[in-house]
Amino acid sequence: MRWGWHLIRLWSLLVYGFMFLPVAVVVLLSFNASQFGSFPMTGFSFRWFVELWNNDAIMRAFRTSIVLGLLTAVISTTLGVLASLALVRYKVPGANAISTLLIAPILVPEVVLAVALLLFLNFLGLHKSFTLLLFGHVIFTLPFVILVVQARLVSIRRDVEEAAMSLGASPVQTFFQITLPLMLPAVLAGALFAFTISFDDITGTLFWKPGGVETVPTQIFAMLRNSISPEINALGTVMIVMTVGLPLIGAAIARQLARKSGT
């Protein structure tokens, strides 16, 4: 049976390779000095990152994506944290049905969600716009925030709050001085999750975005129509660093906070 385990290990190694190889190639090619976004490698260069910096369309897309991601994170996390508090801290009649309702946006295929929202808000007079885009991102990220925050919230012990209250703190004081600091890692995790999902979304975004407005993914998608330019690889590398780096930094901060608050 020893070799059976070795076989599994070899297989897993290949699976890891399959997952990482394409990403590694993007990073590799982004430093290629050649003027085509493909092999062979002709030399090491940062020129595509410089071109990226000087490309107005891409920088505009970046700004749009970041603003959209931040707004989505703030709104979605606020709604999600409040709902999670209710579901974890109170005995709500029909809690199961409510949970299912709140995660419904990820049970419905995103294309269908996109179409329904676009057509309905358009009927109400809200045409394709940044606002529509924001509504879409909020509703699509909300279930993820709720799932993440709820999972962390369960582990916060109630008796600390009860101790504060029994010592004379008002419910509001207790929330801001005890509950919120304890919840902070969960809140940050939820916000980070919402930001990342919003920043990465293309399926819904292509339906909701007004003409002329591009987010980073839709900008990449539009650029792909021609051919892979080396700039796309450079942009890919930046995105990889952002989407991988942000959660890692976030996790580190969360761990620090958790250590400080002593839970």
Binding site: V15, V23, T196, F199, P217, M239
Partner: peptide, 18 residues
Amino acid sequence: LMLPFWISYIIRTMSWIN
């Protein structure tokens, strides 16, 4: 193994062209 999950979907898709 979850790391690529965080990496942009469009980037991962187009990476196969490379």
